[in-house]
Design a protein around this nucleic acid. Structure first.
Lengths: 154, 154
DNA sequence: GGTGAAAGCTAGCCGGC
DNA sequence: GCCGGCTAGCTTTCACC
């Protein structure tokens, strides 16, 4: 993992569809060794995959809320059930189990406030064993991995 | 924006380097109209770009902390200065300005706890006008946009 | 790490529905 | 107006140096 590998990673983070030819040029290599490095980084798991970054509004996910959750019962069964259910929801874009309080921390993405209210009431609050939830509303998303492509339209 | 467009988006989110040929096959189209749809989605801004998803450990970002921040002075200058400084740090992977309390909510990614302490003390706490910060420590990342490629190694 | 050749892909054009 | 077939040109990828 030298400076060239790091440059390759940097370029592919900015444009995951860079052709091997263009990438090789940017890192001052010929295509063949460049491709070998990319394959090696992929095989080692350094590059985990490639994703299209999609405008959230187009997916009815333009409205994001940060949700803090505490469980009433914190045993193996409740934890497993809560985590399995939550990760299964498309609206849950991020979920962390924390040390301390709150027990969980999630990002919920819906089309709008109305859809958020429905999702919270009908999906999240019906999971057994939830003690309390608290919603924090972002006014502005200032930075995220997608910031490489300019500010969110949302 | 029909069912085929949504299928295209779904496949490109899972594998951003799918060739147009392979993509066309998966969505039951021939390559030419498939490519036209992809270009249209890109031009419309629905597909904002493509990124390689990199293992955070390899970037010395295997250790994530959720940081809540309150400003002592909430005027135009303090807000601008704080936001500009914070978004400039590579360690800040996400930053939201919130309605209500706390004022900001950030994700900080460093190599380990020691690096986190240095970053917090030497970078964040030296920004003028910060009233108070509070760190929340994730025990486990259960879901994130990168979950499409399996659980984090971290 | 670089070279060259075969295989495969992209992207524009034009006809059909 | 959108789809499909075709083709020219480029890119990827492999064996070999």
């Amino acid at each position: 993992m030298d400076e060239i590998d790091r440059a390759i990673i940097r370029h592919l983070q900015q444009d995951g569809r860079l052709s091997n030819l263009a990438l090789a040029e940017r890192v001052n290599l010929t295509p063949a060794p460049c491709l070998r490095r990319v394959r090696r980084l992929e095989d080692q798991g350094v590059i985990r995959g490639y994703q299209a970054v999609v405008e959230p509004v187009a997916l009815d996910q333009g409205f994001t809320v940060i949700l803090e959750i505490d469980l009433a019962v914190y045993d193996r069964e409740s934890v497993d059930n809560f985590e399995t259910t939550m990760t299964g929801f498309a609206e849950v874009t991020e979920l962390h189990r924390l040390f301390g309080t709150p027990d969980y921390y999630a990002h919920i993405a819906t089309a709008d406030l109305t859809a958020y209210e429905s999702f919270l009431t009908e999906q999240v609050l019906t999971i057994p064993g939830i003690a309390r939830v608290s919603s924090r509303f972002p006014m502005k998303k200032l930075k995220s991995p997608a910031s490489a492509f300019g500010p969110d339209v949302a």
